[in-house]
Amino acid sequence: MAVTTTNLILGPATLYQGSFGAAEPADTNVAINATPAASAWTDVGGTMDGVKLVVDQTYTALEVDQIVDRAGSRLTKRDMSVETTLAEPTLENLSTLMNGGTAASGSGYKTFEPASASSATQPNYSAVLFDGWGPSSFRRRVIVRRVLNVESLELGYTKDKQTGLKAKFAAHYVSSAIAPLHIAEATS
């Protein structure tokens, strides 16, 4: 197989957060490198060590006594997530990573307090979208429609290391008619 060097990808992605059910940008917008609507999606700022989509699929083997080989397989579990480290440890990003909470501001200050609901309360699902490079130096957009951050939150201060907030936005089922993941890629 010949190598198509224009299919090689290198470069950062821009990560956005929106509400679950936020209006998604049209697929045609990826071709013109348009940013998502500011009213629906918020740029979370700089990231460290990239932004990655992880899809972990579990296939269960089908077996019969009469043959030694695997007779077939069925997809029985799929875990998808978007993982990164947020380089800007703002209160807004803390709220995003704690799946909501209460933010307030006054003259010269801002505050944040995490949600204190019971364990039976429905969590505050959101959505994430990231724009990065695709083949032929065109853009690729990944939208994960219903997520929760499931990563532990650590806010550390160290003399010789930059503070970052690890994020793992786990994808969740949306409906039988709406896939949890959508990827659009420009072709021209």
Rank of each mutant, 00 (worst) to 15 (best):
R140N: 02
P180Q: 09
V82E: 04
K77R: 01
Y157L: 09
R70M: 15
S188E: 15
Q66P: 08
L165V: 08
L10G: 02
L15H: 05
Y157P: 05
T5P: 02
L97R: 10
A40F: 01
S136M: 10
A171P: 10
D69W: 14
D131F: 13
H172N: 15
T58C: 02
G132M: 13
S136C: 02
G100W: 02
I183R: 09
I178C: 09
G11I: 14
K159N: 06
M80S: 08
T163S: 03
D27R: 01
T158G: 02
T187E: 08
E154I: 15
V51K: 04
G108C: 10
L53T: 03
A170W: 14
L86G: 02
E154G: 15
Q57P: 10
A184K: 03
A127S: 04
I9Q: 11
L181M: 05
G21H: 05
Y109P: 11
T5G: 05
R146H: 08
V3K: 03
D56K: 14
D79Q: 09
G72A: 14
W133E: 08
S188M: 12
V55F: 05
F130P: 09
G18E: 03
S73K: 11
A38S: 10
K110F: 10
G134V: 08
A2P: 07
S126H: 01
V44W: 14
R146G: 02
V142L: 07
M80K: 00
S105Y: 12
S73Q: 03
N93T: 00
M48R: 07
F138P: 13
D43S: 10
A186P: 12
R146Y: 04
Y16G: 05
